[in-house]
C-alpha cells in the first residue's frame, strides 16, 4: 500500500516508520524540515535510504500534497499538531482526492465524535487517555458502572 502521512510528530513519524518496516510505500509531508530528524531517529540508515519519501510543505497547499503523492495514496494519515488543520486536510483527501482510507488525529473529543458521525475515521488520543486514566484510578468495575 501507498501511505501518506502528514505531520511527522511523535505519532506520525512512528506510524510512518512501522509502515515502512512492514513493507509499505511511505511518504511523509511536514512543513518543518527539522521534523526529518524524527524519521531518522532509531533508524540504522537515513529515512530515504530506508526507502521512505519526505516532502517539506504546508498541508493546505495542494501542490505540496500532490508532490507528496496524494493521488497515489491508498491511506492518508492526518497527524499534524493541529486539530483544525487535520480536519480540513482529511476532508480534502477524502472528498477531493478520493483516498480510500483516511485517518485523522483529533485531540478534542467532542469534535472527534461529531466528525466520526460524518464519516471521517477519527482517532482521539484524549478520549483514550480519559478512559485509561478512569480505569486506572477507579478500577474496571467503577468505570463500567
Amino acid at each position: 500500500m501507498f501511505i501518506l502521512v502528514v505531520g511527522a510528530g511523535r505519532v506520525g513519524s512512528a506510524v510512518a516508520k512501522r509502515a515502512l518496516e512492514a513493507g509499505h510505500e511511505v511518504s511523509v509531508l511536514d512543513e518543518d524540515p527539522l521534523s526529518h530528524e524524527q524519521l531518522d531517529k532509531d533508524l540504522a540508515e537515513s529515512w530515504e535510504d530506508a526507502g521512505g519519501r519526505f516532502t517539506v510543505g504546508t498541508a493546505l497547499e495542494v501542490d505540496a500534497l500532490l508532490e507528496a503523492g496524494i493521488e497515489q495514496a491508498d491511506v492518508f494519515i492526518a497527524s499534524t499538531n493541529g486539530d483544525n488543520t487535520n480536519l480540513v486536510i482529511a476532508q480534502i483527501a477524502q472528498r477531493r482526492f478520493n483516498v480510500p482510507r483516511v485517518v485523522v488525529r483529533v485531540l478534542d473529543p467532542a469534535r472527534a465524535a461529531w466528525y466520526a458521525e460524518q464519516g471521517l475515521h477519527t482517532i482521539c488520543p484524549t478520549q483514550h487517555a480519559i478512559e485509561m486514566v478512569e480505569r486506572a484510578a477507579l478500577g474496571d468495575a467503577e468505570a463500567a458502572a
Binding site: 493546505l60 493541529g82 483544525n84 488543520t85 480536519l87 480540513v88 469534535r111 461529531w114
Partner: peptide
C-alpha cells in the same frame, strides 16, 4: 485570521 478555523466553524 486562520482559514482552517473559519472553515470548520462555518462547517459545524
Amino acid at each position: 485570521g486562520d482559514d482552517e478555523d473559519n472553515m470548520l466553524i462555518c462547517q459545524v
